[in-house]
Simulated assay, not measured.
Amino acid sequence: MAAFLSNLRNTMIVSFIIALVIIAGYRMHYGSFDAIFWQAVFRWLHVIAGIMWIGLLWYFNFVQTRKMPEIPAELKPAVSKYIAPEALFWFRWSAAFTVLMGLILAWDRGYIVQALTLGATEGFSAPGHSFIGLGMWLGLIMAFNVWFIIWPAQKISLGLVDSDADAKAAAGVRGMVASRINTFLSIPMLVCMTMNQTIFG
């Protein structure tokens, strides 16, 4: 068992196989591959990617950024050269996949236009569309920050692209501010995403 669990790839492959068996069980008992079934699948993919995205966002803000000043200078390259680039890979792609699955889910449920307009297209008569739309826009802003502010800044500050010390310092601040904005936005975004399904269905 220890040998199996020590290999992350094999652990995740088996975990996804079990998940697919469970999904097949849902399909067998539900009896259809209709829109409702696919909404359930897209919601699962949206949530699983979102957990990785927000988990890494909170790791960066609650752990790495806070503790880096306390790490001795000779040990910092271990984080900046090995841990941070790997974490940023999963961070940015989980953000993209979360947004993609969320948009597919909204389209499949038939409210993507209503949500993206915050309910304006229906005279704000469906508050569920306004609330989920608010959550979607917060998520879109956060994903924009990931790809167009945080990741370019981190490439500079981590030395993944050539730059001088001043540029690295400025990029580090720029990336930290955008990441902190995302942490700030993540709590209200999650309120919209979690409460909407329960309150409005």
Rank of each mutant, 00 (worst) to 15 (best):
R27I: 11
S32E: 06
A95Y: 02
L160P: 04
I51D: 06
N145P: 08
I23T: 12
A120I: 10
N10H: 12
W107D: 01
G159K: 09
Y82I: 15
V63D: 01
F124E: 03
M142N: 10
S6Q: 08
F60M: 06
F91E: 04
L138W: 05
P152L: 10
L5W: 08
P85K: 07
L56G: 13
K67F: 14
E70G: 09
G110N: 02
V191R: 09
N7D: 13
T65S: 12
F131E: 00
I112F: 14
A115R: 02
G110L: 07
G55S: 09
E86A: 13
W107N: 04
L20Y: 05
F144C: 05
I112G: 04
V41L: 07
S163M: 04
L45V: 08
I17Y: 04
L88H: 11
A178N: 09
F124L: 12
L103W: 08
P69I: 05
G55F: 09
F144W: 15
S157I: 03
A24L: 14
Q154I: 04
S32Y: 13
F60L: 08
I112N: 02
C192E: 00
Y111P: 00
G175F: 14
M176P: 00
Q39M: 06
I17S: 08
I48D: 02
R27W: 15
Y111H: 13
V161P: 01
V173Q: 05
A87E: 07
